[in-house]
Each structure stands twice: as C-alpha cells, then as structure tokens.
C-alpha cells in the first residue's frame, strides 16, 4: 500500500511537470525555428554573413547551460525567475543546430539545380520557396531533431531558475540526496528524448527527395 501511495503522489505531481517540460521544449524549439530557418535560408548564399551568424550561434552554444540560466536572471526586461527566462536560454541552444543545418542543407543543393531554376525565371523568393526550402528540408528536419533532443536534456536545468519541468524532481533529489527522486525526473526526460528522436527521425527521412 505504501509503495502505491508514493507512486500515486509521484504521478499526480509528475504529470504536470512532464507537461511543463514538453511545453518548455516545444516553445523554445518553435521560436528557434521561426528565427533560425528563415535566417539560414537568407544568409546561406553569403560567406561573410554565414561566418558571422554561425560564429555568434557557436559562441552562444559554448556557454555552460547552468551559467547561462544564471546570467539571464539579473538582466532587465528579458531576465527574472521563471519559465520565460528558461525558454530564452533554451532558444539560444536550439538556435545553433537549426541555423547550421539550414545553411548546410542549402549549400548542399547541386548548383546546377539552382542554376536551372533561375534560368526558368524564378525570382529570389520563388527560388527559396520552391527549390531551396524543399531540397534542404531533410537537413533542416535533422537540425530540429537535434535541437529538440538536446533541449529536452537542457530543460531539466530550467528548474534551477524556477522554470518548472522534470528538473524539479532532479534538483529536489539532489538536495535531499534521494536517488529515486532524481530518477523520477531523469528517467522520463531520457525516455522523452528517445521518443522525440525516433519520431522526428521518421519525419526527417520522409523529407528526403532522392
């Protein structure tokens, strides 16, 4: 009876935390995609802009995640405690793989294909919409998959700044030196990451042209 009570408590608290976790990741990856994909399509053609944007995105990636969450808290407007600040940090991490894979996807398109599309009289925007986006789709999906999987892991740290999610269990477990509570957060997060990887992997392969 004792064990099932504990399980009951865990589920009652855990399901909302799982929901929060998915929410944090979904919002962050979506925002990163809304910025990263168009930017990637736009800068792919220019070696200079490519170097600048990828450089900045790379630099953002090198900041240790706990430190980044910490840095954001004292900032005016964007900072503070809570889910919003957590999402901002997660967006910064999700941004690089999405941007990089979009750029790579566009650069890997056979120049002959782009050339013949231009020769048929496509405008720049038609070229992006009808040729570059569909032909880079698989690579872009790969970027979204990597961003999602890493965000699911990184989002556990969001609990440190009051962002909620499965990290709540992890931090509580660390504080009380209780490995089962840590596991109650870590295991669902790991399973979630595996599920997202598999699911998005299927979508990714569907996007392949050849």
């Amino acid at each position: 009876m004792m064990f099932s009570d504990i399980l009951q408590d865990l589920l009652e608290e855990g399901l909302p935390l799982l929901g929060e976790h998915i929410f944090l990741v979904a919002v962050s990856v979506t925002v990163a995609a809304i910025i990263g994909i168009p930017l990637g399509l736009f800068i792919a053609a220019s070696p200079r802009w490519r170097a600048i944007a990828l450089g900045i995105a790379n630099a953002g990636q090198t900041i240790p995640s706990l430190a980044l969450f910490g840095f954001l808290i004292p900032l005016p407007w964007v900072g503070g405690i809570g889910a919003r600040t957590a999402i901002e940090a997660l967006v910064l991490y999700a941004f690089l793989p999405i941007l990089r894979n979009t750029v790579t996807g566009v650069l890997n398109i056979d120049p002959g294909i782009r050339d013949s599309a231009v020769a048929m009289g496509m405008t720049r925007s038609q070229l992006v919409r009808l040729v570059e986006l569909p032909l880079a789709a698989r690579s872009i999906m790969g970027g979204l998959r990597i961003a999602t999987v890493t965000s699911i892991g990184t989002a556990t740290i969001a609990a440190a700044i009051g962002g909620g999610g499965l990290g709540v269990f992890v931090f509580r477990g660390i504080a009380s030196v209780d490995k089962w509570t840590i596991l109650a957060g870590a295991l669902p997060a790991a399973l979630l990451a595996l599920a997202a990887d598999a699911l998005l992997g299927i979508v990714e392969r569907r996007c392949a042209v050849e």
């Binding site: 002959g112 294909i113 050339d115 013949s116 599309a117 231009v118 020769a119 048929m120 009289g121 496509m122 405008t123 009808l130 040729v131 569909p134 032909l135 042209v209 050849e210």
Partner: peptide, 20 residues
C-alpha cells in the same frame, strides 16, 4: 530579368529538371 527568362524557352545542357 525574370520577364526575359520566361519569354525564352531554354533547354539546358544535362536537362536541368528539378529533382523534387
């Protein structure tokens, strides 16, 4: 530029069809 290209039919060396 686009007007000109669409006013001319161009059969490209090696075909140049869009693969997707």
């Amino acid at each position: 530029p686009e007007r000109l290209k669409r006013s001319i039919g161009y059969v490209i060396q090696e075909g140049g069809l869009l693969p997707h």
